[in-house]
Structures are given as C-alpha cells and as structure tokens.
C-alpha cells in the first residue's frame, strides 16, 4: 500500500487553511463550557444591562438602543480572548512539532483558531441582536448601514482575535495567556459602550475618547440607530486595521521565533 504510492505534492495553502479551520471549529463545538459561555454571555449581559442597570442609567427606558453596540463588543472581546488559550494550548502540545516538520505553512494552525473565533463571535453577535430585539431594540438602519456595521464588527473581531493569538504565542502557557488576555477585556468598560464619556471624570475622558473601542462603538451605534458618527468612522477603521496589521505581524514573528522550543 504505502510503497506503491509516490509521495504526493504537499497540501496547498487553501487546503491547509481549510483543514485547520475545520479542526478549530470542531474544537470549539466540543469545548462545551466555552460554547455555553459564548451563547449564554450575550443573553445574560443583554438582560443585565437592560433590566438591572438600564433603569438607573437612563430612566426613560431607551437604554437598550444605546447599549447594544457595547454588548456586541464586550462579547466579541470575551469570545476572541479564548483564542489566546487555544493557541497557547496548541503550542505546548507535541502536535505542533509534527505540524512544523511537515511541508506546510504551519502558521495556518493559528489562522484556523482565528477563523473559528470569527464564527463563534458572529454567532454571539447574532444572539445579542436577537435578544436585544426581544427586549425592545429598534434600529433604524438601512441594508447598507447594517452591512457597514457588520463589516466593522468583523474587522474588530479579526483584529482582537489576532491580538489574542499573538498573546497566546508569546506567553507560552495556557494559564498565562488567559491572564494577560483578561486585561484587554476591561477596555470596553472604559469607553462610551455603557455610558457617554462626557459623564466620566475629565482625566478618564481623555483615555476613553482616544482608545480604539470608543470610535468603533460610536460608529456601530451611528450606523444602527442614526446617532452622529462624524470622524469616528475613519478612526474606527483606522484603529481596527492598525491593530490587525500589527497583531498579524506580531503573531507571524513570534510563531517563527518560537521554533521548536517549548
């Protein structure tokens, strides 16, 4: 059997990516705790912010329309942070040595995790919007505005997932990856996600207005509910694209530098 077959040509990049994406999606589906978290978190946060905090923040009852973009980004942050753990776990397992000694582009193993994260987070986004609709969210966006918002959400998820992938590659252990990744998850709270930045102390406003989450939130909010976007649109795309490019380069660099060391 084996002897009769000549060594086939190595797998193409497209096949390699497809195989690793399939692998990571299987991993996601079989990690029941994470999957439950990815589905339950958007539901719980949506209900929490609408019924528990919402009345205090905006007694008029219109808070749901304000808070949806924030919940989407908060869930996307949580969802993509598990990529750091997934990548770090792979890097500490013997299987990575086997992949690296095959004639394939082994960085695709990370691409697979990123693609799976995108799928998981888009699912979570759909759940947020679905639950939000049930509790009174009424966006007035046109189809083009919906697509624009979706495009920005995809760009944001990819940027942050690659950032978490890089963290997973440099930290070297799943628990360290989880710890460092956690710090990034506070960014949405220090933005205009849940309250306008004008309600914050002035020293905090400076940070909140000039960190990547605020422009992304304001742009999505503007596209979905018609609030003014202004310069936030370009800032949102600029921030996300810059993070994506840097995170990609950082990931590729640390993947190569790690070599066979474990």
């Amino acid at each position: 059997m084996n002897q009769a077959q000549p060594v086939p040509k190595p797998a193409s990049l497209a096949v390699t990516n497809a195989v690793f994406i399939g692998r990571s999606i299987r991993h996601s589906l079989r990690n029941v705790e994470s999957l439950m978290m990815a589905i339950m978190l958007p539901v719980m946060l949506m209900l929490l912010f609408t019924y528990v905090f919402g009345g205090a923040i905006d007694p008029g009852g219109d808070y749901v329309n304000y808070v949806v973009p924030g919940i989407i980004l908060l869930c996307a942050g949580f969802g993509s942070s598990s990529t750091a753990v997934d990548v770090a776990t792979d890097m500490t397992n013997g299987i990575i040595d086997r992949f690296r000694t095959m004639p394939i582009r082994s960085l695709s193993i990370v691409t697979g995790h990123v693609a799976a994260s995108l799928v998981r987070n888009l699912l979570a986004t759909a759940i947020v919007i679905g639950v939000a609709w049930l509790v009174g969210f009424r966006p007035n966006a046109s189809l083009a505005e919906w697509l624009g918002a979706l495009g920005l959400i995809v760009l944001f998820i990819l940027a942050f997932t690659w950032l978490f992938a890089a963290i997973g590659l440099v930290t070297g252990s799943p628990s360290a990856a989880s710890g460092y990744g956690f710090m990034l998850l506070f960014l949405p709270y220090l933005s205009s996600a849940f309250v306008p930045t004008s309600s914050m102390p002035s020293w905090l406003q400076g940070f909140a207005n000039h960190q990547p989450i605020t422009p992304v939130i304001e742009t999505i909010r503007g596209l979905l509910t018609g609030t003014p976007i202004g310069d936030y649109g370009w800032q949102a795309i600029g921030w996300s694209a810059a993070i994506l490019v840097l995170a990609l380069a950082w990931s590729a660099f640390s993947f190569r530098r790690r070599g066979g060391r474990r």
């Binding site: 086939p8 190595p10 096949v15 013997g94």
Partner: peptide
C-alpha cells in the same frame, strides 16, 4: 516525526486525526 509525547489531537477522534493528516500531506 513522532515526538516524545504522542503528537495527536486529543479533542478529535482517531479517524479525524488521520483524515486531517492525510489532507495536510496532500
């Protein structure tokens, strides 16, 4: 290379491991 610690994917089944490696091998 068959590494020191069984270098197979624990989350996947044996069948899926083999299919994956076959596809990656072209």
């Amino acid at each position: 290379l068959t590494g020191q610690f069984a270098a197979v994917d624990e989350v996947l089944t044996g069948y899926e491991n083999l299919i994956m490696m076959c596809r990656l091998s072209g």
